Computed example of a mutant assay.
Amino acid sequence: MDQLRIKDLEVYAYHGLFGAEKELGQRFVLDLILDYDMTRAAQTKDLSASIHYGELAEQLTRWCQAEKEDLIETLAYHLINQIFFHYPLVEKVSLEVKKPWAPIPLPLDTCSVKLERSKRKAFIGLGTNQGDKAANLDAALKKIADNQKIQILKTSSRLKTEPWGGVEQEDFLNQVIQLETWMTPEELLETLLTIELDLGRVREIKWGPRLIDLDILYIGQELIDSPDLILPHPYVAERDFVLKSLVELAPHFIDPVKRKSMRQLLAELEKNHP
Rank of each mutant, 00 (worst) to 15 (best):
D2M: 00
L4T: 14
I6T: 00
K7H: 12
L9A: 09
E10V: 08
V11G: 01
Y12R: 09
A13M: 03
A13L: 02
Y14D: 10
G16S: 12
A20G: 10
E21F: 01
G25E: 00
R27T: 11
R27K: 12
L34E: 12
D46W: 08
D46N: 01
S48V: 05
A49Y: 01
H52M: 03
E58C: 08
K68A: 05
K68H: 10
L75E: 09
A76P: 12
Y77S: 10
H78N: 05
I80C: 08
I83L: 10
I83T: 06
F84S: 01
F85K: 03
H86N: 13
H86G: 02
P88R: 05
V93T: 07
S94T: 13
L95H: 14
K98I: 01
P100L: 00
L108D: 15
T110Y: 15
V113P: 14
V113H: 12
L115Q: 06
E116G: 04
K119E: 01
R120S: 07
G127F: 04
T128H: 05
T128Y: 04
N129E: 08
L137G: 05
D138C: 09
A139K: 07
A140Q: 08
A140W: 03
L141A: 02
I150M: 06
I152W: 00
L153S: 07
L153M: 06
T155H: 09
S156F: 12
S156G: 10
S157D: 13
K160E: 15
E162V: 14
G165A: 12
G165T: 11
V167M: 03
D171P: 14
F172H: 11
L173G: 09
Q175K: 04
Q175E: 05
V176G: 13
E180L: 01
T181S: 10
W182D: 01
P185W: 02
E187R: 03
E190Y: 08
T191S: 04
L193A: 01
L193D: 03
I195F: 10
I195P: 13
I195H: 14
L197M: 12
V202M: 15
E204A: 05
K206H: 12
G208T: 11
L211C: 04
L211N: 10
I212V: 13
L214P: 04
L223P: 06
L223A: 10
D225Y: 13
S226K: 09
P227W: 09
L229S: 08
I230P: 06
P234H: 05
V236T: 12
V236S: 11
A237H: 14
E238L: 14
R239Q: 04
R239Y: 08
D240K: 10
F241Q: 11
V242N: 15
K244C: 15
L246K: 14
P251M: 12
H252G: 04
I254A: 01
D255R: 04
V257A: 15
R263Q: 11
E270P: 00
H273V: 08
